[in-house]
């Protein structure tokens, strides 16, 4: 048997560049894939003296199939995103145990009852949008400081923003396309619905953009390295 070959620093760096060039931008996935490729290449080089590093690298990469690394990244993003939303909805509903939410509900109820719908709906949406924009700016600013992006942390910090802006747009266009015709059959009860949606959106935004990014389980190994 041949003796075991070990890749040197520059070859490891080469692998990092290789993985990055295949659109893996998250550091945690990069390091896992680099280690995997390195193990495989070392194994191949030890078994075959004729083989050089570059051809072994190509061989090792081929084993990842036609989707290469992108499938791994997308599937992980999806898994973490799903986990995040489940938690965000759960936490938002948990807030209905919080007395504060009833103050908001009452406030939105009064607003929706006494201010013409179109005014308060636009005003409310505008406020939420400004809130989202400010949060987005703050998060982007913070993420630029570190050049290592961890998949889990990235999703936890940015996913709230993207879902909230989508939700606001949906609710906004849905309501402004004739809310009164749509819910007129509810009569006076429609104000309960409006205030519930308004309070829910506000608390969902709070949970997914501010609370969860602070408390959600981040990449467990991050602190050990950085």
């Amino acid at each position: 048997m041949e003796h075991h070959k070990t890749l040197d620093e520059s070859q490891i760096e080469n692998l990092f560049a290789f993985v990055k060039s295949h659109y893996v931008e998250y550091y945690d996935i990069q390091l896992e894939l680099v280690d995997h490729l390195a193990n495989d290449i070392e194994h191949m080089l030890s078994e075959d003296d004729q083989l050089d590093f570059e051809s072994a690298k190509t061989k090792a990469f081929k084993k990842f199939g036609i989707y290469g690394f992108s499938d791994i990244v997308t599937k992980k993003e999806n898994a973490v995103t799903y986990e995040f939303f489940k938690e965000a909805f759960y936490q938002t509903f948990m807030h209905f145990k919080n007395p504060l939410i009833y103050i908001f509900l009452l406030f939105f109820f009064i607003v929706s009852k006494y201010i013409p719908f179109i005014y308060w709906a636009i005003g409310y949406n505008l406020l939420l949008f400004i809130g989202i924009a400010v949060l987005d700016f703050l998060i982007k600013k913070r993420e630029k400081k570190t050049n290592k992006i961890y998949l889990r942390d990235h999703i936890v910090t940015t996913q709230g923003i993207s879902i909230c802006s989508t939700l606001i747009i949906i609710v906004h266009s849905f309501f402004l396309n004739g809310p009164f015709e749509l819910f007129s059959w509810l009569g006076e009860y429609r104000h309960y619905l409006y205030s519930f949606i308004a309070a829910f959106l506000l608390f969902f935004m709070w949970v997914s953009c501010i609370q969860l990014p602070r408390t959600f389980r981040l990449s467990s190994y991050r602190l050990k390295q950085d």
Binding site: T6, E9, I12, A79, E83, S220
Partner: peptide
């Protein structure tokens, strides 16, 4: 993908250690 799914479901956990000149998960 299977490993990451198990991780996100909380069935496995991850530790990163330095092995030689690289990190290993």
């Amino acid at each position: 993908p299977a490993l990451h799914k198990l991780e996100s479901e909380g069935f496995v956990e991850v530790e990163v250690l330095k092995v030689g000149n690289r990190m290993r998960k």
